[in-house]
Computed example of a mutant assay.
Amino acid sequence: MRSLLSGYYGKGNGGDEALLATLLQMLPSHVTPVVLSGNPEETRDRYNVEAHDRMAIVPVLQALRSCDALIWGGGSLIQDVTSTISPFYYGGLMGLAQKMGLKTIAWAQGIGPLVRPQTRWMARQNFAGCTKVSVRDRASAALLSDWQIPHILAPDPVWALASKPLPELENLPTPRVAVTLRQHPQLTPTRLTNLTRALVDFQKATQAFILLLPFQKSEDLGIAQAIQPHLADVSQILCLEDPQILKGVFRGVEMAIGMRLHSLIMAAAEGCCCFALSYDPKVNRLMEDLTIPGWDLATLPDDPHFISQTWLEHYTNSQRISPEKIQFLIDGALTHRDLLHQVFT
């Protein structure tokens, strides 16, 4: 069997690449993946899969005709807050696949926010037509329940992504703290300045080595480069393309301060304590589910000293997620794998 995988792949986003890597890890061995990607050559080389340009109409249609199934491959694909085009792209592809008679799977979805009536209506039609649906959070499950659409709720599949160590990490000083920030309207210049000052104070108090981890170069690298000169000789920017290695970095980290959802999931899965800076409801949902401390960026304290002291207290006194809880979440995430095996038996 051949299955077309559709997601925000090949765009340099570590979280979405981690979802793709996990999906490929979970697909039954007799299913041949065909990936729609923003960078098909890179995707082909990294994962050894057939890949096509996600925006090239003729190759996409040819790929659809050659496949037996379409999988929406995880994450917040169906939302209309950061992009009005995105839900129509994914929704149109799903609707076309359903009309062509393909098996269709909405896999590990985080649905919404959906603020426009037309995208909400289209999303409901798409999900109702799917062969199987799995979601990664309670809010998405509640929405599908309201729509009376059968679904499975399980932790984000990246909990179960096999990680790989980064050998170079052994040469960097310990203890280590990882920081993952991204461009966002709520991360104003004033807030970034306050976070940078807080990070400098926090580093002096802990003597930790700061790892600045851009999860998406186009969004994150500029911020890391703005912070790094203030932490000369006690920090390093790590740009890692392999999502398994990106996850593995957190094995050697004491604490993670993160905006990005999958930076927090990866860190928690590797036994690292976490502090969240939320810019999106999906991050708040994770904070609630795991009782991760943090702030919404919109209400970030104005005092850098207060920020650094809060981090220091968390660094000193925080309880990590227990190994038993981590294993429970990993086992739960494997439910997304079981769903794939059910569809493709």
Rank of each mutant, 00 (worst) to 15 (best):
M1G: 05
R2L: 03
L5R: 11
Y8R: 08
Y9T: 00
L20H: 10
L20P: 04
A21R: 05
T22M: 01
L24E: 06
M26W: 09
P33A: 02
P33M: 11
E41P: 03
D45E: 14
R46D: 01
Y47G: 05
V49L: 12
R54V: 05
A56M: 01
V58T: 02
L61V: 09
Q62Y: 05
L64W: 07
L64Y: 01
L64S: 03
R65W: 00
R65Q: 08
A69H: 05
W72F: 07
G75R: 10
S76W: 11
L77C: 00
L77W: 07
I78W: 06
S86L: 09
Y89F: 05
L93S: 05
A97G: 04
Q98N: 02
K99N: 10
A108W: 02
Q109V: 10
G110Y: 08
L114D: 10
L114A: 00
R116S: 13
W121Y: 13
R124I: 02
T131R: 04
K132A: 09
V135F: 04
D137E: 12
D137T: 06
D137N: 12
A142M: 03
W147A: 06
I149T: 06
P155T: 09
P157I: 02
S163T: 01
P165H: 11
E168Y: 08
P173R: 07
V177T: 07
V177A: 00
A178L: 10
Q183L: 10
P189R: 00
R191T: 01
T193N: 15
N194Y: 00
R197C: 02
A198P: 08
L199E: 03
K204N: 12
K204E: 13
T206H: 14
Q207S: 13
A208I: 11
L211V: 06
L212N: 10
Q216T: 13
S218Q: 15
Q225M: 14
A226N: 13
P229E: 12
A232S: 15
V234K: 13
S235N: 13
Q236L: 12
P243K: 06
P243F: 09
Q244L: 11
I245Y: 02
L246D: 04
L246K: 06
K247Y: 05
G248N: 10
F250Y: 14
R251C: 08
V253R: 05
A256N: 08
I257N: 00
R260Y: 02
S263E: 01
S263M: 03
I265Y: 07
A267W: 03
C272P: 04
C274V: 08
L277S: 03
L277G: 08
S278Y: 11
V283L: 11
V283G: 09
L290E: 08
D296G: 12
D296E: 15
A298Q: 15
L300K: 01
D302V: 14
P304T: 01
H305D: 03
E313M: 11
E313P: 10
R320D: 08
I321W: 09
I321C: 07
S322P: 08
F328T: 15
L329P: 07
G332P: 00
A333K: 03
L340R: 05
L340H: 14
H341K: 12
H341N: 14
H341V: 10
H341D: 12
F344R: 03
